[in-house]
Nucleic acid binder design. Structure first.
Lengths: 262, 262
DNA sequence: CAACTTCCTTCGTGATTTTGCATTTTTTTA
DNA sequence: TAAAAAAATGCAAAATCACGAAGGAAGTTG
């Protein structure tokens, strides 16, 4: 196993569990504690985590997991906000939509419609907490085991989703390519999102430009099953072209203009 | 738990509640008061808080945001704390317990065991959020519609519970009488709790003395199905006698002594 | 193909950190 | 002012970390 792979695995676990133990990592990855410590030092230098005695906790750059406590209150970038706003515009009166537990979903919360009623299903207790007081939104939480990160993504949650029918599934992912489709780092999150997509009439995928063309471990769904892809203006033209050839509708959101549309 | 995590948890609580007590922190975080004091010193040096005798208040670097709704639950009366502590003592290693969304359940959170692993199932996202970071606790959230109060209590939630088997169900209610059993104000909450009680091996009922003898609209379960009743020393003797005649084990907790037991 | 370089890893040893306990001092409260 | 609670201080045990040395795999160069 290469150092790079290991470090990726460490970050993944950090995102999932909210913390990692050096000793446990050494054991499960099959290397010495020394090596792990070096990895942690390297990752800390890059700002991905913060070392502690015995392990590490998420740093400022760990975004994907939903809202590490530090990031929870941080604001999305202009591009993220623009994408989120556009996405929220797809929600119709009395629709039922799935909103996951990724950072972009969190950014969406501030852009959701306020003037008419709709229903949100989410697998994040953090998002649920934020939505519960909105009068025009019915909030449903999927059942299952809650991870330290605030996400629910086990078999129970998948089963829960299977019993529903949704109008829109808002997907995000760590990677999006014409060949591999939408993908993410961990298997169970992928399965949960796939299920949400399967029970939804429409699948809208939100990705910042840096995700285009990259492919991650676990595929959520192939590109053919995505109805709309929302990305920002920094997206490379050729990637967009490839995506469009698959039949997906690609909408490029311009952060500058987004403000005016409102 | 890492020092860093602890300190973040302390700051989190400081933000939520406006102040922290050293002793309470030590207990709920599972470390000695010494360690907490050292954490407070470190945080004070960084300007995040100002130490006081017995705890700390927010420093210049901590925005003490609007008090979260959780605050009103955070501090229980002496009687409530004593009951909650006694109740928490029933939890054994690797047990699976149901903790509802009532005020007394919130009070319990600070008294839960920290030294061994167990599993909590809850229908409150507020409680789930509070528990998700505890490393010795596996937290499960029931699925269903989330009410503005942070409670989930619909048919989906009931269905979720039916698929589980629990060791202990911690019940509370608005009323408790020998004749009418445990009761509460609303129907669906009653059904949810009844279901939790049905799938649990043991039912432990937590009620402050003022609830004894009163009966509310919706019965959760008859008294015969309650295994243990916990109440405080102000409970009237005759009521206790009536309850005991039904076969239930009634434990009267003395707030004064409760401190010494610890 | 052999010698060299480079990178990565492990191991051993001493230093550091963290934590809890006991004791003394200070502060609070009645 | 006396008793109780909390804080400071010193100390010891356990865990973790840092650093240097050595081994080994992969690739490079002559």
């Amino acid at each position: 196993m290469f150092a790079e792979e290991r470090q990726q695995a460490i970050l993944q676990r950090l995102r999932e569990e909210g913390r990692v133990l050096a000793k446990a990592l050494a054991e499960s990855l099959g290397v010495s504690a020394d090596t792990i410590r070096r990895d942690l030092i390297a990752l800390e230098k890059k700002g991905f985590l913060k070392r502690t005695h015995g392990g590490a906790i998420p740093g400022k750059k760990v975004r994907s997991g939903p809202l590490s406590p530090a990031l929870r209150y941080s604001e999305g970038s202009a591009a993220e906000k623009a994408i989120a706003k556009k996405a929220a515009g797809f929600i119709g009166r009395d629709d039922t939509v799935f909103i996951g537990s990724a950072r972009l979903h969190y950014v969406m919360l501030d852009e959701l419609p306020t003037s008419y009623h709709f229903t949100v299903v989410t697998n994040s207790t953090v998002i649920a907490e934020k939505l519960k007081a909105r009068e025009n939104i019915d909030t449903y939480v999927v059942g299952g085991r809650l991870r330290p990160s605030g996400t629910i993504a086990d078999a129970i949650a998948v089963d829960f989703l299977r019993g529903l029918r949704l109008d829109i599934c808002f997907l995000t992912g760590g990677g999006l390519s014409a060949e591999h489709g939408v993908s993410t780092a961990t298997g169970d999150v992928a399965v949960l999102h796939r299920t949400a997509a399967e029970v939804a009439r429409r699948v809208i995928c939100l990705v910042t430009h840096d995700k285009l063309g990259s492919e991650m471990f676990a595929r959520i769904i192939p590109i053919q099953e995505v109805d709309v892809i929302l990305t920002d203006a920094d997206a490379p033209e050729d990637e967009i072209q490839l995506l469009r050839e698959t039949g997906a509708e690609v909408i490029v959101v311009d952060p500058e203009k987004a403000g005016l549309e409102a």
